Structure formats: structure tokens, C-alpha cells
Simulated assay, not measured.
Amino acid sequence: MARALVLALAGMWGGAWAQATPVGLWRSVDDKTGEARAEIRITESAGALSGRIEKRLSKDARPGDVCTECKDERKGQPLAGLEIIRGARQAEGREVWEGGKILDPENGREYTLRLTPVEGGKRLEVRGSIGPFGRTQTWVRVQ
């Protein structure tokens, strides 16, 4: 009985801890209009995060849309499946991932990235910045 309780509690704790990470599926929300823009899948490989647009949700999204403003190898690539997050790593001893880049496919610019899970991992603060200037969006975890 005690062993089953310990295992059940460990499972709940492990699940809660696993949610306090950016890894997973997120719904991006436009910080100006409140409109859902896309679903982004963030994955981890060798300690670094990457994120791809899994599904576009905006009203004006068309299946064949490509990144016309991108300036690197992503130029002309379909927006669905486009890698927009690269190289973020967890800051030592903190639940913050930084040091990577995030691409805004609407203008082709890359920004320095910081990802901070909040509300036990239910939301993700996504900050893109250039120098001291930047903006933060709050993404919502998709269950």
C-alpha cells in the first residue's frame, strides 16, 4: 500500500516537473489582437530546443504560404513546418531557456530568445529581443 502511494505521488510529481519545460505543443497568440496565430511544436535534442510551426491558425493563412521575408535557407520554405526556434538552452539552475534565436516569418527578422514556463508549465512567456528592445508573447500549452 505504501509503495503504491509513493509510486503514485512520484508519477504526479514527475508529470508536473515535465510540464515546467518548453518542450511540447504551444498555441501562439498575437500580443496585439489576442488572435490565435499558430501551433508550434518545441522539441529538445542534445540539450538545445528547436520549434517548428505545426499548424497555422490565423484567418488569412493559406496552405501554400511560404516564408518570403526569410533571409537564410528558410526563404521560400513553406510556413507549415518552418523552424522558427533554434538553439535555446536551459540556464543553469533556472527554469529559463535562452541563448537561442526566434524567427518572425512575417518580417524575416531573427531575435534573441528567452523562454520561461509559467503557471506550472501551462503557459510559456516567449521573449524576442534585439539589444534592450523586445517584446514578450504568452503562448498556451495545447493538451
Rank of each mutant, 00 (worst) to 15 (best):
I85H: 02
E106V: 15
M1L: 09
A10C: 13
G11C: 05
T43C: 03
K55E: 11
A10R: 05
C70Q: 01
R109Q: 11
Q19C: 04
E106Q: 14
A38C: 04
D104H: 07
L79Y: 09
E39S: 02
I84W: 03
R89W: 00
Q137M: 13
R3L: 14
E92V: 10
F133P: 00
G93V: 02
S58Y: 15
I130D: 03
G64L: 07
R37K: 14
W139H: 07
R37Q: 13
T136R: 05
G15T: 09
I40E: 09
A18E: 00
V96Y: 03
G108T: 10
A10S: 08
D104V: 10
E98A: 12
S58Q: 10
A10F: 12
P105Y: 05
E54F: 08
S45L: 14
R41I: 11
I130M: 07
I53Q: 06
K59C: 00
L49E: 00
P132C: 01
L79P: 10
R141L: 08
G76S: 14
G34W: 06
R41T: 11
E110L: 05
A8F: 13
K32F: 00
G64S: 15
G100H: 06
I40N: 08
S45E: 15
S58F: 14
G34N: 01
R86K: 15
S50D: 15
G128Y: 02
K32Y: 00
G100K: 06
T112L: 05
V142N: 09
G121P: 09
P132L: 11
A38D: 00
P78L: 07
G81A: 04
V6F: 01
R127S: 14
A61R: 03
K71C: 00
V96E: 15
G51N: 03
L113N: 06
P78V: 05
G128F: 02
Q19G: 01
L25T: 13
V96P: 04
T116W: 05
G81N: 13
A80R: 12
W26M: 12
E95T: 11
V29L: 00
L25F: 13
R114E: 13
G100L: 09
P132R: 08
V118M: 01
A88Q: 09
L49A: 06
S28Y: 02
I40K: 07
A46G: 09
I130P: 00
R135P: 01
G131A: 10
A46C: 04
D60K: 11
Q90W: 00
R74N: 08
V29G: 02
I102M: 10
K101I: 07
E106M: 07
I102A: 09
G121C: 09
A2D: 12
M12R: 08
S58W: 15
A16H: 04
R41P: 02
S45D: 14
M1P: 10
G108W: 11
